[in-house]
């Protein structure tokens, strides 16, 4: 039984991205858990649409950065500009100073620029020329990225992937939905404009606070820990889940529980969130017949661990 306010949120986002309840649900959970979201998929399945819709339903500031190969760090954080009137340097905040930042096609820019964004994500502040500027609260980065096989990209290093709480794939819609989308062809802007704003900043902040106050039984902690440990000892995985990822999994499970209208975390929250929280961080071993799918690996690991009763 989802929370009524959140149900409206989900419905609103679903107006823009149709037939993708799971992706919508996971991105909202990421928002509630104060995490950053990475949407990975081939072009043209609605990555940007989902990000835009998500930014639209929450009534807060939104900036979009289109990552290109010549984008510079200062294009994100902002620069000090010399003001001839006052004879002093003046800080011009960059697009990162917003509640929701869409970093579109993040792997198209150079690592130097990527790291500028990713450092801001972790520290919720930006340092320019020795001055530190706090980022607004709430602050969420939604990054989209094309899969690595695509030409002209700079893959994100593992340490930076680790900072995204949740990574989702959208996938192609079902045949019915896809045909329906073709029939009702409209301007993308118009479709997005139809998405209503349903959540204020204050409300979002209170939701986020409530997410941290759910009851978490010791057995849930143990369950999470077992999953993380198993990923480290797995013989197909070189680098397993980090401690930060365990924290992320717990926060995501809490948000998932809150989203489902519960005041406690249940095993299914952990089980549902484990693949989207953990899979993108794993470094798999090479060799053998083809690279394993990390999402399937995590699902296998979770299926090998007794759920708490």
């Amino acid at each position: 039984m989802p929370h009524p306010g959140l149900k409206a949120l989900e419905d609103a986002v679903s107006l823009a991205l149709r037939g993708k309840q799971k992706a919508v649900r996971h991105s909202i959970i990421c928002l509630l858990a104060r995490g950053h979201l990475l949407i990975e998929d081939v072009p043209g399945v609605g990555k940007t649409t989902l990000a835009l819709a998500l930014s639209k339903v929450v009534d807060c500031s939104f900036k979009r950065i289109q990552f290109t190969s010549d984008l510079l760090p200062s294009d994100i954080t902002g620069v000090n500009v010399f003001n001839t009137k006052t004879g002093d340097f003046e800080f011009r905040p960059g697009p990162i100073f917003a509640n929701i930042v869409l970093a579109d096609e993040i792997n198209r820019s150079s690592p130097k620029t990527q790291s500028a964004l990713l450092e801001a994500m972790n520290e919720t502040c930006v340092s320019v020329d020795g001055n530190t500027f706090m980022l607004p609260d709430p602050f969420m980065v939604i990054a989209t990225q094309n899969p690595l096989e695509q030409h002209g990209t700079y893959p994100l290093p593992e340490s930076q992937l680790d900072r995204f709480m949740i990574s989702i794939r959208i996938g192609y819609p079902s045949p019915e939905v896809e045909k329906d989308v073709l029939k009702n062809i409209t301007e993308p802007q118009k479709l997005l404009e139809s998405v209503p704003r349903v959540l204020g900043v204050e409300e979002l902040l209170s939701f986020q606070k409530k997410c941290t106050r759910l009851k978490v039984d010791d057995s849930i902690i143990h369950y999470i820990h077992s999953i993380v440990l198993a990923s480290r000892g797995h013989d197909m995985i070189t680098l397993g889940a980090s401690t930060r990822s365990a924290q992320f999994l717990l926060r995501a499970a809490m948000a998932s529980a809150f989203y489902s209208g519960r005041d406690f975390v249940a095993p299914e929250d952990v089980k549902e969130m484990a693949p989207v929280v953990l899979a993108h961080r794993l470094v798999l071993k090479n060799g053998g017949p083809g690279q394993a799918n990390p999402v399937h690996l995590i699902k296998d690991i979770v299926n090998g661990i007794a759920a708490p009763v």
Binding site: A266, P267, A307, V309
Partner: peptide
């Protein structure tokens, strides 16, 4: 179901 199944499943 198996031992890894949650109450929900």
């Amino acid at each position: 179901f198996t031992a890894s199944s949650t109450p929900d499943e």
